[in-house]
Every structure is written in structure tokens, then in C-alpha cells.
């Protein structure tokens, strides 16, 4: 069933449209940067963007930092929100289940397919950003090492390792979003409802983070540690928020997947 879901995802035009749209923003940023040569000052604007002007090979990181906080969560919420509710709306859910595909198995397959979608989009963004970055912004002298945000130099190898860590961390954050959206997808009858519900949660979380009165809640908000991956590029790495972020996301993943599973496996399919 997992293979079937992956096949469906890869063959869907919507998948590629979404990826294209996600990809468009960092590309636009690269073009603007190349034309105007106006970068944000170090420490301001999206992470890494200031460093990009001197070294185009860093642009994949900057591109991910642009995409991760907003575009990718939207795409994940849409895709995962569609998972069950979309099949229900198209009427195909009942035919899946009487094939028979076990309900738990279907849920797992959907989750895997959503995560595969995330990996695919991140890969596409990283690759295009690398190509666009080196073409438009030029190659810096990578051999002497790139700069960490703390000012010291990182070797290329270390940079690569930290990038992979940051990617893994971002994936986990997206898994948290996917878990919420998948749960709502088993509850809601409309895929749009599930996606918007998820986005509402994320937006509410972002708003509460800016509110001092909500400080008691803040450590538990899903988006609280999303940007902690930037800490991985400090020297030395600032682990505190990253570790808390991982634990918090794990809690969200476990709780919402369990709730989604409990709801879906005991639900009357009446669409």
C-alpha cells in the first residue's frame, strides 16, 4: 500500500505544481539579490541570506530557511489534510477499505507518502537553489571554509554535516505538522477543512509566541522551536533549543498520530 500511495503522489499533477510554487520563492529571491546586490545586514532577515552574496553555494541553506517557516508547512498541511478526507470526498476511501486495505496500514501509507513529499520538495528546493545560487551569485572560495553565524569558519565537511542535521530537524518539525493535519483529516469531511484547521493551529501558535501573557504556554506551542535549526550553525552548536524542539515535536507526533489512529480505526465510513 505504501508503494501505491507513493505512486499516486508522484503521478499527481498537484504534487509537482506545489513543489514548483514552493521553489519559485527562493528562486525569485536569488534573482533579486543578483540584480540589486542588496542583501540584508548580517543577523537580520532570513537566516544565511547575508552570507549568500559572497558565496552562492550557501544559497541552498538560505533557500531552505526561506521555505521552511511558511511555505513548506502550508504544503504539508494541504497534502496531509487531503490524505483521508480527500479520499473520502472522492468516494475512493470506501473502495480502498473494501479491497481490503487495513485502516492502520492506510494511515501509515499516507504518512509515509506525505513525508516522501516533504523530502522531495526539500531536495528540489536545495538542488535548484544550488544551481541558481552558483549561476547567479557566483562561487565563493569554499576551500577556505564558510562562515558560521557566530563568525568563525566551518569546513565544508562540517557544513555538510550540519546541513544534514538541520534538514533532519526540519523534517521532524514537518512530521509534527503532518501528524496534526492527518488527525484532522480523519475527523473532518473536507480536505480543505483539515488543511485550514492545521494552519489555524500553526498561526495561533505563532501569534501566542509573540504574546508575553502566553509565556506559560509557549514552551508547548508547536512552532516554538521551529527555527532552532539555525543554532546548529553556531560555533559551538547551541543544543538546548534543538533538543527541546525534538522532544516537543515527538510529543506532538505521538499524540496526534495516536488520536488519528484511534479515531480512524473506529470510525463509520459513511461518505
Amino acid at each position: 500500500m505504501i508503494l501505491v500511495e507513493l505512486r499516486k503522489m508522484v503521478r499527481s499533477r498537484r504534487t509537482w505544481t506545489t513543489i514548483l510554487l514552493i521553489d519559485a520563492l527562493p528562486t525569485l529571491v536569488a534573482i533579486l539579490l543578483a540584480i540589486t546586490d542588496l542583501g540584508p545586514r548580517p543577523g537580520q532577515g532570513p537566516a544565511f541570506l547575508s552570507a549568500v552574496l559572497t558565496d552562492g553555494t550557501l544559497f541552498p541553506l538560505a533557500a531552505l530557511a526561506i521555505v521552511l517557516p511558511l511555505f513548506l508547512p502550508i504544503a504539508v498541511a494541504l497534502t496531509a489534510g487531503e490524505a483521508i478526507a480527500g479520499e473520502a470526498q472522492a468516494g475512493t476511501l470506501r473502495y480502498l477499505l473494501i479491497r481490503p486495505v487495513g485502516r492502520t496500514r492506510l494511515l501509515v501509507a499516507k504518512l509515509v507518502s506525505v513525508m516522501a513529499f516533504v523530502v522531495l520538495s526539500v531536495l528540489v528546493v536545495a538542488v535548484t537553489a544550488y544551481v541558481v545560487g552558483t549561476l547567479l551569485l557566483g562561487k565563493g572560495d569554499v576551500t577556505t571554509g564558510s562562515t558560521s553565524i557566530s563568525g568563525s569558519s566551518l569546513s565544508t565537511q562540517e557544513l555538510l554535516l550540519r546541513t544534514l542535521l538541520a534538514l533532519a530537524y526540519a523534517m521532524l518539525c514537518m512530521l509534527g505538522v503532518a501528524a496534526i493535519a492527518l488527525f484532522l483529516s480523519t475527523v473532518s469531511e473536507s480536505p480543505l477543512g483539515a488543511a485550514l484547521g492545521t494552519l489555524a493551529v500553526l498561526i495561533a501558535s505563532t501569534i501566542l509566541l509573540t504574546l508575553d501573557a502566553a509565556s506559560a504556554l509557549q514552551p508547548w506551542l508547536p512552532t516554538r522551536y521551529w527555527l532552532a535549526f539555525v543554532d546548529l550553525f553556531r560555533d559551538p552548536i547551541l543544543w538546548r533549543d534543538v533538543v527541546r524542539g525534538v522532544l516537543l515535536q515527538l510529543v506532538y507526533v505521538v499524540v496526534f498520530l495516536a488520536a488519528g489512529w484511534a479515531n480512524f480505526t473506529t470510525k463509520d465510513i459513511t461518505d
Binding site: M1, A90, I98
Partner: peptide, 29 residues
């Protein structure tokens, strides 16, 4: 697996051909 059913009207993935739909449903379960 030994039961074939049509429940409240047919349903298929609208963007795929009939043959692709059946192949997909056949691959499940």
C-alpha cells in the same frame, strides 16, 4: 478479497484513466 462491491455509486481518481485506476486499485490489498 472474495467480495466485489459497488457501494453508493462508483468512485475513481478523476485525473487518471480507467485502466490506470483499475491498476491502482488492483495493486492495493
Amino acid at each position: 478479497p472474495e467480495v466485489g462491491a459497488l457501494v453508493e455509486g462508483p468512485a475513481a481518481y478523476a485525473h487518471l484513466s480507467g485502466r490506470a485506476n483499475l491498476a491502482l486499485f488492483d495493486a492495493m490489498g
